[in-house]
Write a protein that binds this DNA or RNA. Structure first.
Lengths: 140, 140
DNA sequence: CGGGATCCCGTGTGATACTG
DNA sequence: CAGTATCACACGGGATCCCG
């Protein structure tokens, strides 16, 4: 049962029970409900490099619609991860920047990216193997 | 360009551009497409504490339907994060355990949970403030 | 420029019934 | 026990038009 700490990737992390009758709140769902959607992390990544205006964000994030960009930054603002500043010029000018809380999220995002890059090939091969052994499978 | 390592929470992490024409692949979306859904992380959390059988998982994860548990473990299996073992008994007996890749994910999940618990109150207050200042808002 | 309002559709998820 | 099959539906998200 002893765990070697000489190798950080040796075993799974110790995690509190989660989503169970007695322990409904582990916090994980909160984060995922916040950044698990299609665009939030991309906005955060873009803002990690500094303040951006609305159109700047839209141009930087390929494929996002005006509607979704609006909704995404609004939600991030509501959660206090992004600060929205309106400059009363004509035409209006609005910029977005990460709050301190939002900035702290970037480290998590980086951890996600690092993990992905590290295991991407392994996962791709696992998929190929699985799909080869399960020809007719509605999962993909 | 130098980074102080004395304070990890000082500023935002340095992140590669992501989702842009020139840099479409930062890897983040891959991870989120994998664990960003409603149930995957809960399965991973449960399996972090050891192998589980199908019904065990379903009882441990409150609210999950048979269908969604099946789909979730299948996807995780396909990606090589979970190993599925069928014992040819009667009635059939199947157990699930994390692969090494899957186990490495638990550290990420723990980071997510830690971040959430650390900022949950701050975010809750930000929401209250926002909602108070924006009475009729379709965001929530 | 920075949105709001509407319409529309795919798909992720839930409920239920059936099977080896 | 460990699934599969089917239906049913809400919701996220895209497209489009309009406004201050």
């Amino acid at each position: 049962m002893s765990v070697r700490h000489t190798d950080v990737t040796a075993g799974p992390a110790e995690l509190e029970p989660c989503g169970q009758p007695g322990h409904p709140e582990c916090g994980i769902r909160d984060v995922l409900d916040r950044v698990g959607d299609k665009w939030s992390v991309l906005v955060i990544v873009e803002l990690a490099n500094g303040a951006r205006r609305f159109r700047q964000l839209q141009r930087a994030i390929e494929g996002i619609s005006q509607r979704m960009l609006t909704l995404t930054v609004r939600r991030l603002e509501r959660d206090g991860l992004v600060l929205r500043t309106v400059h009363p010029t004509v035409p209006a000018q609005v910029d977005y920047r990460l709050t301190e809380t939002g900035a702290s999220l970037t480290h998590l995002v980086k951890a996600l990216a690092d993990w992905s890059l590290e295991h991407r090939d392994t996962i791709a091969r696992a998929r190929q193997t699985y799909d080869a052994q399960h020809p007719d499978n509605g999962i993909r």
